[in-house]
Design a protein around this nucleic acid. Structure first.
Lengths: 215, 215
DNA sequence: GTCTATAGCTAGATAGAC
DNA sequence: GTCTATCTAGCTATAGAC
C-alpha cells in the first residue's frame, strides 16, 4: 500500500499481463511485443521496467511465489497438529491457485521446465529459493507427522510430489481437466469437490490406522 | 517391423530428435534448424518428411501415445479384478515413462498446454482421440471398481487427475524432482519406490475398508 | 531425398529524440 | 517514461537445382 516505489502503475500492469500470457503459452511462446501492447505500451518501453525478458519472467514468478508464501506461512507456523495443518495447507494452496488463475500453470512450468534457460541466471535465484523454502516446509511438516505417528511411514519427498500433482497439476490442466470433469475447473462446486477428494485421499492414504498393513 | 513405408531411417531419426527436444523445451522453444542439424540433415529436408512444424510435433506426440496404448491395452482388456488391473496399469504407465524419458514431459505438456495452437489443427485430432481413449478406459476402470465395491465412492475424474499427477507429473519433474528426492528420478531404486508409494496411497486411499468413515 | 538460396516475418535488445 | 527507428539474429516455409 505505502510502497516506496514512485511509479507503480505501469510495472504492475506489465506484470499482470505477462503473468497471464506466460501462464498460457510459456516463456518461449510469448513475445515482448504482445506483452507490451496488451499492457498499452510500446515494446521498447518494457525495457525501461525490466532489463530483459528473463528478468520479467522471474519477476512474474517471484510475485506468484510471494503471494503463495504469504498465504501459507501463518499455517506452517501455526500451532495446530500436523494433520490439521496439512489440511489447511492444501485448502490455502488451492484457494490461492483458484483466486489467481495462471498461478498453477506458471508454477507447474517452473517445476518441470528446467531446460528453458541454458545457463543459470542470477534473477532465477530468488525464485528457486522461494520454491525450496515452501517445499522444504511442506516436507518438514510431513516428516513431523510421520515422527508423531499420525502419518504412515511414507517417503515424504514422494508425498510432496503427489501433493503437487494433486493440486498444482490439477488446476493447471485447463481444457483437458474441464473435458474430464465435464464442466469448469474453477466453479466453487468443483473446487470444493477437489479439496474434499484430495483431503479424503490424504486421510485414508496417509493417516495412520490402528492396523497398518505392510507393503 | 514390416512397415510398408519405404524409407524408415531419416523419419525415425527426426522423430527421435524432435521427441527429445520438444520434451525439454516445448513446442515454441524448439527451432526446426536445431532438429534438422541434430538429426544430421539440412533444415529444408525436414519439410520433405513433415509438411509443417505442427505436423512434426503431433507425429511425435502420436508415437508416444501409440507406445503407451500398446502397453496399456492388454492390461485394460485383461480379466483381472479392477484393483489388480489398476495396480498393473500404474506399473506399466511408469515403466513406459521410465523407458522413454521425455514421454512424461511431452504428455504433461499435451495435457495442460492447450493455448499453444490458436486454431484447432487437423493433425491434432488423432492425438486428442488417443488421449481421450486412454483416459476414458482408466475412468471406466475406476467406475467399475467403485461399482464392484472394491473402491471407495470417489469421483472418478478427480481420481484420474490425481493419478496423472502422481505418475506423469512426477516423472516430468526433472531437476526439481531430483533435488527433492536427493538423487536421480530414474534409478531403478527410485522407480521402484515411486511405484510402491503410488500403489500404497491408492490402496490405503481408495480401497474400500470394512469401516469407511464418511466425508 | 538432400541440398542452397531466399522470401517474409518476428524475435530480443539498443540508441537516442522528446 | 514513452516513443520511433534500427540492429542482428532467428524463425517457418518455399523454390528449384541436383
Amino acid at each position: 500500500m505505502s510502497e516506496p516505489t514512485p511509479t507503480i502503475g505501469s510495472r504492475e500492469k506489465i506484470l499482470d499481463v505477462a503473468e497471464s500470457l506466460f501462464a498460457r503459452r510459456g516463456y518461449a511462446g510469448v513475445g515482448l511485443r504482445e506483452v507490451a501492447e496488451t499492457a498499452g505500451l510500446g515494446k521498447s518501453s518494457l525495457f525501461h521496467h525490466f532489463r530483459s525478458k528473463s528478468e520479467l519472467y522471474f519477476a512474474v514468478l517471484g510475485r506468484v511465489l510471494d503471494r503463495m508464501d504469504e498465504r501459507l506461512r501463518p499455517i506452517f507456523a501455526g500451532g495446530a497438529g500436523p494433520l490439521e495443518r496439512l489440511d489447511r495447507i492444501i485448502e490455502a494452496l488451492i484457494d490461492e491457485l483458484v483466486e489467481h488463475p495462471g498461478s498453477a500453470r506458471l508454477l507447474l512450468r517452473a517445476l518441470f521446465e528446467d531446460d528453458d534457460f541454458a545457463e543459470p541466471l542470477p534473477e532465477a535465484e530468488p525464485v528457486e529459493g522461494a520454491i525450496e523454502s515452501i517445499v522444504g516446509r511442506l516436507d518438514a511438516l510431513l516428516r513431523e507427522g510421520v515422527a508423531a505417528g499420525v502419518l504412515r511411514r511414507v517417503s515424504t519427498p514422494h508425498t510432496v510430489q503427489t501433493l503437487i500433482g494433486a493440486t498444482i497439476y490439477h488446476f493447471a490442466s485447463g481444457e483437458f481437466g474441464e473435458t474430464l470433469l465435464g464442466g469448469p475447473l474453477l466453479s466453487s462446486e468443483e473446487v470444493r469437490r477437489r479439496k474434499q477428494e484430495v483431503k479424503a485421499l490424504l486421510h485414508h492414504g496417509l493417516a495412520a490406522t490402528p492396523a497398518t498393513p505392510g507393503s
